[in-house]
Design a binder for these strands. Structure first.
Lengths: 151, 151
DNA sequence: CATATTCCTACTAAAAGAGTAGGATTTGTC
DNA sequence: GACAAATCCTACTCTTTTAGTAGGAATATG
């Protein structure tokens, strides 16, 4: 499993904020209730989003969170990488510098690199806005059965 | 991480067999030595490949394993699904029947479904033969720097 | 000052990941 | 028939990750 509940719930929170945010701040308890998720757990997840600059927050009564940018300015890629740490499908493909010592001669490495690219490709082409618009064509591509054939 | 050492080593074993197999049987100790992997661990991995019909085996002295088909008849997809159980990037996208109870209204589900398809698409288009041929163009696509621009 | 909120640290239980250990069984060779 | 080399099989262990929970401090509003 590449994306854990951490990344999934983070995305859910972002979508919820995009939908229910508007100008004001949305409290975490509201989000947790709407999405039927543990507020305590969401706390730890939203902290990552907040520290990563994805949100702005306000403490105290009537406080809460709101998106730092417009929904179309977030790619799914960056949300998931921030919360999951990496989206690499294998350990071979982690950070820039350090590589497996067999990397130079490894015949399967190009496969993993290609898979990594395919995933990044897909997830960086979709934005929060696409999700709240329900842009199934963009998300499901050729596999979308309920998409208008004309674009 | 979507693919663990189990899937990675399984692929390594398959590639090794494709390269060093020929007609005869190759012993696991040979493979482990060549690939510098724990033979005991490989034992449990190759058992999955064997039971899954990917290999034929011969017990006793001079025994070993060999591929059940030609290298171009194995997709990477099927090797990894057999050994990993699933390649689904999230828990939401597991088996056919059972789904999350929020599936009907979940706005992020199409994203996960699309990601799943993108992964399957990539991995089912590549065969063992592509790997042993070092077909970087196919594996790395547009990101391949050392690929011939003409085809 | 009471209350609703974010913020912060620490803890825990279960599952998955990455092997190890030991031996039973089979088969070819001397 | 004994031996050696191999697959086959069951069980165990240690570590890391996952998925939370618990409790309280800091802050802002009415």
């Amino acid at each position: 499993m590449m994306v854990s509940t951490k990344g999934r719930y983070a995305l859910t929170v972002m979508v919820d904020l995009a939908r229910n945010g508007g100008d004001g701040f949305v409290s975490l308890s509201d989000i947790a209730e709407r999405e039927k998720l543990s507020m305590k757990y969401l706390e730890s997840i939203i902290a990552i989003l907040n520290k990563g600059g994805m949100l702005t927050s306000l403490r105290g009564k009537n406080g809460g969170y709101k998106l730092a940018r417009r929904p179309d300015e977030y790619t799914i890629d960056e949300i998931l990488i921030l919360t999951e740490g990496t989206l690499a499908p294998v350990n071979c493909i982690m950070q820039e510098g350090v590589q497996c010592d067999k990397a130079a001669t490894c015949s399967t490495l190009p496969l993993w690199a290609g898979l990594d690219k395919a995933i990044e490709n897909y997830l960086s082409a979709i934005t929060l806005e696409d999700i709240i618009q329900g842009n199934r064509k963009k998300m499901l591509g050729d596999y979308c059965e309920s998409c208008d054939p004309a674009e």
